[in-house]
Design a protein around this nucleic acid. Structure first.
Lengths: 213, 213
DNA sequence: CGTAAGTTGCACATCCGTGTGCAGGTTCGG
DNA sequence: CCGAACCTGCACACGGATGTGCAACTTACG
């Protein structure tokens, strides 16, 4: 339960290694199960992790604690992945961000599910703020430089870009598709919302090496 | 409970008029409340309708019965509204359908919420099939006649159109917007996904009188 | 190999929502 | 104005999920 083991190594015996494995297994199972049903019981999650429900309480005090940990974990992953992306051209940058989110489908979807309702809404959207800011900034700059449509308020357009990505992720969940198809669809959808027609979007993808998977 | 009152008027005294009012109030309240939280309790719904929970059971046998009635009701409304739409040009038709759905935000959103998970998924998607078929057909024809992009499989594109509409409805729920803005946004989003750039979409809207609100 | 960490299974209390029964009140409608 | 239809408030049974306590077992690790 306490991550700071090194703090007081005095008389205590160290944390068992398999316990940490189980903790991760639970988080992994929680991601998978809650993605299908955000109201799934702890029993279902524990079972999916190959543990008993009782054991779960050895790692997480409450259900909320588990979900909170899961979300925090996934938010870190996603933000780290997005942070690595750089591109001078706003629309290309946004398409790249979309593609990156596609590669983290499960994390993104589970976050989206808890971002709408439940006790974690605000906490979560606070954690995702950096990502949102980046999208908004890219949209704004792109609109000013004429690379992105300016007939829609940039704050709104930024949220529509979010929506476009989630839309494709939903589609992928209901009708499984291979990685290449998914990435292409995300890029096309994002560029479409940003104001590119089909040919223009394809051209931009073709001339952006990072978008050629 | 029984809608077919006229069937056996013999010895029975007729249904009280205010009871039917209450039934409708419950359905209306259910739509509003379940839109915010699909797991809201019957208590919350009854309260929103200005009735006691106990009275609710006089109109609907079970929770499922209530939700089923609500969805059936809304599906009928939406399908009827969409049925009235006609337009020879596929992209314009799809934009019009989107705008019509926008005018039924609450119904559409509540349906979307129960279309994903829960016991009504299949039943609901069965009821909405005519709408889906129409969208798919328009997309297919549009792609064949060169009015709509053909670089995305038409079944997939049809579902992305759905997603685009829902995306705007979500946006409208979180950041309320006036009717005109909403209709414009829906039309632009749908056309964007169909392969139109910003200018092209605006042009198509301008030359389609039914899309000028 | 011994000990502590970890897991299991069970029992139990608790909470919350659903669905039902019933007595008593209010209101519509003939 | 009478009676039936409707609503209320309360009680209760029930199921499902959460969270806790405890004894017994298994496993990792020094």
């Amino acid at each position: 339960m306490n991550t700071f083991v090194d703090a007081d190594p005095g008389l205590q015996r160290s944390r068992r290694r398999d316990a940490e494995q189980n903790r991760l297994a639970i988080l992994r199972a929680a991601g998978a199960v809650l993605n299908r049903d955000p109201d799934a019981s702890l029993d279902a999650i524990a079972a999916a992790a190959g543990l008993s429900r009782r054991a779960l309480y050895g790692h997480f005090a409450t259900r909320d604690d588990l979900i909170r940990s899961l979300l925090a974990h996934r938010v870190r992953e996603v933000l780290a992945a997005v942070d690595r992306i750089e591109h001078p051209d706003p629309p290309a940058l946004l398409a790249l961000i979309g593609v990156t989110l596609w590669r983290q489908v499960e994390s993104v979807r589970v976050m989206a599910q808890f971002a709408l309702r439940g006790p974690f809404q605000h906490e979560l959207s606070y954690g995702l703020q950096p990502l949102r800011d980046r999208v908004k900034h890219a949209v704004t700059v792109g609109a000013q430089t004429g690379r992105i449509r300016d007939d829609i308020d940039s704050a709104t357009l930024a949220r529509l870009v979010e929506g476009a990505v989630l839309s494709v992720l939903d589609e992928a969940t209901r009708f499984p598709m291979d990685a290449a198809t998914g990435e292409r669809l995300v890029a096309l959808s994002v560029l479409a919302i940003l104001g590119y027609d089909a040919a223009g979007a394809r051209a931009l993808i073709a001339e952006t090496p990072e978008l050629r998977s």
